[in-house]
Design a protein around this nucleic acid. Structure first.
Lengths: 147, 147
DNA sequence: TATTGTTATACTCTATAACTATA
DNA sequence: TATAGTTATAGAGTATAACAATA
């Protein structure tokens, strides 16, 4: 029989897996892929960005961003615009439909949050977030140690 | 400013991302890839398995399992053994080093669980797991509706 | 010299479709 | 007929290394 700690970790991982599955459903619906959705989400957070910035934000190589942006240009979600001051750089910029997709993503995110947590008491949600934050802090310490 | 519900979802996603990053670290250390680790983990849960069984367990096509098993055979973690009663099927079976890798995975999993939760009170862990389970149940309902 | 992005190359994961061997 | 696994083919994501243009 698993310990209480192991059960807690397993339950967290179970929820992670379910959320990932839900994302896959959205991918199929939208015709987008995970990394491209992640890129659009990043653009929604920061506005038009250089590929270097996106490379850091997504944690992948610049070469990889080239490929993702190529795909999103082909699907009409973004364009490459001139950087106003640095002629080496490009500004990856959402098109009108790209902006709509980003807004849909944000709306879906908020809807999901409401559906999952709105029926709980504020107290329960607060306690949950507090424990999550504690787990995150511990995990970050562990990961820094391992460096 | 995000709502409390949105903050809760964001915190869950943050933890998911951190756990994924930690897994990537393990991948680099072990020379394995995510899907191959997942396959070895499944073997650890159920023992030697047919590729059909693994296909269902991992949620990927049988063709894909062929590729993953090819890789794990090449790296010496598993072998394809004859199925005792069905000559069409193969039993993917861990080698000695493969078994050791599986044990390492299980040990790492338990260590992580202990490090993340052992210093909390039983009461806090119980409340956390209860809320997680509630979220999981709600999410599963939502995903079934969407079908 | 350093940085931005691309071309060249290679590997892994993924899928569908057609095929072989066996049940 | 149905099932287990493989071959054939294709597309996406990832990485390193070498290169051009610009800072």
């Amino acid at each position: 029989m698993p310990t209480e700690s192991t059960q807690a970790l397993n339950t967290v991982l179970h929820l992670s897996a379910l959320l990932a599955t839900d994302l896959v459903r959205y991918e199929h619906e939208s015709g987008l892929t995970g990394p491209r959705i992640q890129l659009l989400w990043a653009l929604g957070q920061t506005g038009p960005s250089t590929q270097q910035t996106l490379s850091t934000a997504l944690g992948v190589t610049p070469r990889n961003i080239t490929g993702l942006v190529d795909g999103l240009v082909a699907s009409g979600h973004v364009t490459r615009e001139k950087h106003p001051t640095d002629r080496r750089a490009t500004l990856v910029t959402p098109t009108r439909p790209g902006d709509q997709t980003i807004k849909d993503l944000q709306d879906s995110h908020e809807d999901l949050a409401r559906q999952l947590f709105d029926r709980m008491s504020d107290q329960q949600v607060s306690a949950f977030v507090a424990t999550l934050s504690e787990v995150i802090a511990t995990l970050q310490e562990l990961m820094e140690e391992a460096t």
